[in-house]
Amino acid sequence: MYIKQYLKKNWAAIFKEEVPDNFDCVVLSSCLEDYGNNLVLIFPDRFCYPKYIMKMSRTKRYGFKIEREYQGLLSVSKNPDLKKYIPFPHKSGTLNGLPFVIQGGIPGESLHEILRQKGYISHTKKLIDQAIDLLVEINTTNVISEVDKNIETYNVVDALKNQPELICNAGLSCSELEPFVEQYNTVVDRVFFVHGDFWGANILIDPISNKVSGIIDWEFSNSNSRTLPDIMWFVLNLLFAFNFKKIRDGSFSNIIISSLSIPASIDLIRDCFKRYSSKMGIKDLNCGQLLICTLFEMSFREMSAYGSSNKMDSECLSLLKFLTANKQIMDAINGH
């Protein structure tokens, strides 16, 4: 395999260590869509998890995601408190014109799976708290990456202004959209570092120490964001994980909508938000407003980034429409 020969030849230069006698490569696709990536998992002998992972764009068109991931990892690796939790970015480059990044592998189980299986108990609550504390570290990392340096503000609203047809395609009118746009731009008054896809599946838990061991998948990271979607995306996915078993065969939006009728779910949203906002130290951060803005961003993110939407976009859009139409739920979330 040429990919193996390439790694063997460049091993010392990339990983700053001697090339092992034997190593194996597992090749897999992250999803079946053309904006997905191909992954080469590199297992040196006796390793029970991939020590290194080569992530490669399937087409040149989506190569920017790989570059964004590499730059995001480089930026976060400068934060000494976060460095041990991120896949170390060893190299980026192109092979046959396709961008790739080689990063360190992190052992651990997906937090999402643990939450789905164990539910909300004291052990999982500790994991959630630790994830929120790390999120605060990420969001307050004060480094603007090379990729984001030249972008004054990178957000979905800007993208939508350039592509108004996307709004119509989503079944919304510009007048319906106006309040979201207004809120979106006034949630926070400075730039933040955002992970961009902060949810349980991208948070790894060390089964021995039972603590967070890593945060992966940084291709939506943005070091120059004027919005803070991470916390609410994390919380929505907590609701999804905890209620998945109860509402069988339900979609993401249906499961969350059903869960919002349970007072414990509202308490969970408020508790997570309270922990996050107190640690972030941002005055007047509004839980409901942040939730709406997060859903707004997630409804249009893939469309504005890739030019095509996926199932999750429409799920977020359904949730967005539901929440904006149900004032009493928003009041409960805001603690009124």
Binding site: C25, V26, L28, S29, C31, L32, F43, D45, R46, F47
Partner: peptide, 15 residues
């Protein structure tokens, strides 16, 4: 999705 697992390596069981 689509994953290919090497079957002739020494580390097959761990992988």
């Amino acid at each position: 999705f689509f994953s290919l697992v090497p079957l002739d390596g020494q580390n097959r069981r761990n992988i």
